[in-house]
Write a protein that binds this DNA or RNA. Structure first.
Lengths: 145, 145
DNA sequence: AATATAAACGCAACTTTGTTGCTTTTAGAA
DNA sequence: TTCTAAAAGCAACAAAGTTGCGTTTATATT
């Protein structure tokens, strides 16, 4: 589907320039319900785009609150679009993520409220919480291994 | 302090050979209350040890249940010693971790019970949970930035 | 429409983390 | 003492990400 006007707004809103690469990147995030790494993006875009450009765009999108880090491991950092980008959805600042161990996809569980956990607060001051649930997603569950 | 007999037992128990490198590695884990990556280990051991040897030892220790992955990100995989190594402590299979954003150290919160969260189980089947609390550790809190 | 400029792009080079294949050394059992 | 699997060492490679620097371009302003 065509989200071009939506994407244009999103870029303009943050004072970012509308370029082919950045528009294509954002439409990837909009059209997928799972998080994407730089390599995921390169894989899905037509070839010939410099990796550096993708990395810098991701950094810029994160700084501007368009994307957030959904998962981070040795395979790379996966980003997802922030829910507050959609005018009709509230932003879940701290939400859980689900990571499928089969396909390595990471999904945002925007509706899952993060439980508050007591930790020895004389030793640590808490900043944020990363709650990632690992398992198998529905698609892989039905797949012959 | 000297843990050599403890370390010897630990290695023998798993049918692993007692070598200089592996003993030194284990004593690092015992004498630090935070998780260590391959690079952390190399930094703390006297130079001249092959990185590959460290990586393979870490893998072997994890397979044998001596170490577990405490955190994993772009900076590397950090391992911590499993609590059930100590005869007088029970093993907390699923425990939370604390990661200091200043010094990048990861601590095992063995006493923090993992909160159980409801997720749409028609979409996902849960396997395990990663609960990592980010913030500032006590040491860095008192440090002038 | 022309122009100025900051943002974005592209290229080369580099770093860090980790892996694989293969050979040599060695701990510890027989 | 001998034997052997485990551990160590070396070379080469790969993936993810970063930095510096010069070029191009979107867009605001004239």
């Amino acid at each position: 589907m065509d989200n071009s006007s939506f994407i244009n707004d999103m870029l303009r809103e943050h004072g970012l320039k509308k370029t082919r690469i950045r528009s294509e990147m954002l439409s990837l995030f909009i059209n997928n319900n799972f998080a994407l790494s730089a390599s995921d993006i390169i894989l899905r875009m037509k070839a010939g785009n410099d990796r550096v450009t993708i990395y810098r765009a991701l950094a810029s999108f994160e700084e501007n609150g368009i994307l957030h880090k959904a998962s981070e491991d040795r395979q790379g950092i996966k980003y997802a679009i922030c829910e507050n980008q959609y005018p009709d959805k509230k932003h879940s600042v701290q939400h859980a993520h689900f990571r499928c161990d089969e396909c390595q996809k990471t999904f945002c569980l925007n509706d899952v409220v993060l439980p508050n956990v007591k930790i020895p607060n004389k030793d640590f001051s808490v900043n944020r919480v990363n709650y990632t649930i690992h398992g198998t997603c529905n698609e892989c569950k039905d797949m012959p291994r």
